[in-house]
Design a binder for these strands. Structure first.
Lengths: 266, 266
DNA sequence: TAGTGGTCTAGACCACGTT
DNA sequence: ACGTGGTCTAGACCACTAG
C-alpha cells in the first residue's frame, strides 16, 4: 500500500531538497509534526462535512490504516481535537463530532449562570426582528466581509423564569445563511447554534468575547424591563467555524441582577 | 530495585482483594491510572515546595527511574500539568515550575485589555489600606474558614496610563499571610501574585470569577474618578493554590470605558 | 558532545459498550 | 465475543540547548 499523499516525516529529507524551498505538507502548510498533519487532515474532513455533528468518525485503527501511520500518531491528533472540544471521545463506543444538539452542551457558549443555582431554569426566546441588510463597517470587519455586503441582522430577547434577561443583536453573513427569516426561526425550539448546524451546516467551534459594563438606553430598558440607566453587562462575541472563519457577531446585553457571568482562569 | 511505594497498576489485582475494600494509591485516592497517580505525586512535591516556582523539575528519565515507570507514563502526567499551566516545558532545557515572575505571564489572571491595543500600557498600584480583621461570613465561606477567623483585608487602586481603572478589595487567610502590611506591600514592585510566591510561598494556580454589571457608589466613584452610578464591571474572584485550596478572595471593580474584559470560549 | 524534551512506532493488555 | 477507546511499555530517532 502506498503512503497517504502529501504526508511527510521529519526524517524524510530528500537529498535534492534545498533550504530555500521548504517542503509542504498534505494541507499546504509548512513543515509540522506528522500528528499535526493528521490533525489538519481530520479538520479538513470535518470542515467538508465528511463526518457530520453527532456522528462517529472512523476508529483509530481505521484512520491509522487510511493515513498509513501508527495508531499512536492518530491518537495524538484526535487528543488535541478532543481537547479543543471539536471531537468527543467515548470509551467503548467511538469518537464523535461535537454538536450543539445536547442538553449538556447548551451552556458551552453561554456563560451566564443563576446566582442561586438550585432553581431549575426555564428559558424562552422572543424574536424581535430578522432582516437582511447591508453590513455596517464594524460588523463587516469582524466577519471579514466588505462594508455593504449583505448580512442577516437578528434581534431577540431571552428570558429565564419568564424574566427578560438577555437582549441579543446578532449579525450573520448573508451568503451563508440564505433562507433565514423570522418565520424559519419561529419553527426552531432549541439553541440557535444547534439550529445553524442542522439548517445551514455551520458548526460554531470557538468564540471570543469582549465584556464591558454599560447603562441601559431607554429602548433597551423597555425590552429588558429594567430602569433606564440600569447597569448591564455588554458581551460582544465573535464566533468561528472550522479554520477560524468568523461566522457570527453577537452583541448581548445581560441583566446581572440575579445572574452572573462565570469564568475560569488557569 | 523495588517499586515506588503505593503505586499500583490496573492489572495488579491480588487474589485476596475484596470488592468491598477498594485499593488505595500512594496519595490515598481510590484507583486511578498510573499516570494520574504520578501526576498526584508530582502535585504533592510541588505543593510541598520540593521544586520552587521558576526552578526545573527532574528530567523525565530521572522521574521515570524514581517512580519505576516508563518515561511515557511520566510524560503523560507532565503533559496534563503543563496543560493546566502548573508546569512549563522547554525543549532542550527541561520542565519548569510555573511562576508569576514573568512579564509574559503578567496577564494570566488579569483579563482586562485596552480597547486600542497599540498603546503601550503603563500601570501603577496605590494601596488604600491593609488591615487584619475578623472575617465576615461570606468571605469565610469562600476561603473555607470560620466566620470571625482572622483575615487580611487589602484595598488598592490600579491605574493604567495614570487613569484609575481597577478598585480591588482583597481578602487573604491571616494564618498564611502573617507579616503582610501596607509597609511590606510598599516594597513590592511587580504583580501581587509574584509577591505572594516569593514572600509567602503561596502559588496561585487557578481562579474562578463571577462577573456582574453594577453602578458605582459615591465612595467607589470618588476613588475611580467616575460619576456616581457609572456602570462598573464587578469581578469576584476566588484563587486557589495546589490541591484546590482557596487562598484569596478578590472583589474588583473595573472601569470599562477604554478597557474590556477579554474571554475565549471553546 | 551530552542532556533535555518531542515525535513515532509496535505491541500488549485493560475497561467499556454492544451484539 | 468483538470492537472501541484507554493505559503502559520499550526503543529508536529528531530537535533544541548548553558547555
Amino acid at each position: 500500500m502506498q503512503p497517504y499523499p502529501g504526508l511527510m516525516l521529519m526524517s524524510d529529507t530528500p537529498s535534492s531538497a534545498r533550504a530555500s524551498e521548504p517542503r509542504r505538507t498534505a494541507t499546504g502548510a509548512a513543515y509540522s509534526p506528522l500528528y499535526q498533519q493528521i490533525k489538519a487532515l481530520l479538520l479538513q474532513s470535518l470542515d467538508q462535512g465528511e463526518w457530520k455533528p453527532g456522528e462517529a468518525i472512523p476508529s483509530e485503527v481505521d484512520l491509522a490504516a487510511r493515513f498509513q501511520v501508527s495508531q499512536g500518531t492518530v491518537r495524538k491528533a484526535i487528543d488535541e481535537l478532543a481537547a479543543e472540544n471539536l471531537l468527543l471521545r467515548r470509551q467503548g463506543k467511538g469518537t464523535f463530532v461535537a454538536t450543539h444538539h445536547e442538553a449538556k452542551v447548551r451552556f458551552r457558549f453561554l456563560r451566564l449562570a443563576p446566582d442561586n443555582p438550585e432553581a431549575p431554569v426555564t428559558s424562552g426566546s422572543r424574536i424581535l426582528d430578522c432582516r437582511r441588510v447591508r453590513s455596517p463597517a464594524d460588523i463587516a470587519a469582524l466577519l471579514q466581509l466588505r462594508t455593504g455586503d449583505i448580512v442577516v441582522n437578528l434581534r431577540r430577547v431571552l428570558s429565564f423564569e419568564n424574566v427578560p434577561t438577555i437582549l441579543d443583536d446578532i449579525w450573520l453573513p448573508g451568503t451563508v445563511f440564505k433562507g433565514l427569516s423570522a418565520s424559519t426561526l419561529a419553527r426552531n425550539k432549541g439553541p440557535l447554534y444547534a439550529f445553524f448546524e442542522s439548517e445551514y451546516g455551520v458548526s460554531m467551534v470557538r468564540a471570543e468575547e469582549k465584556i464591558k459594563a454599560v447603562s441601559a438606553t431607554s429602548e433597551q430598558a423597555g425590552l429588558l424591563q429594567v430602569d433606564v440607566n440600569a447597569p448591564l453587562l455588554q458581551v460582544e462575541r465573535v464566533s468561528f467555524t472550522y479554520g477560524d472563519r468568523p461566522m457570527e457577531v453577537r452583541r448581548g446585553l445581560y441583566v446581572t441582577d440575579r445572574f452572573h457571568y462565570k469564568n475560569s482562569l488557569n
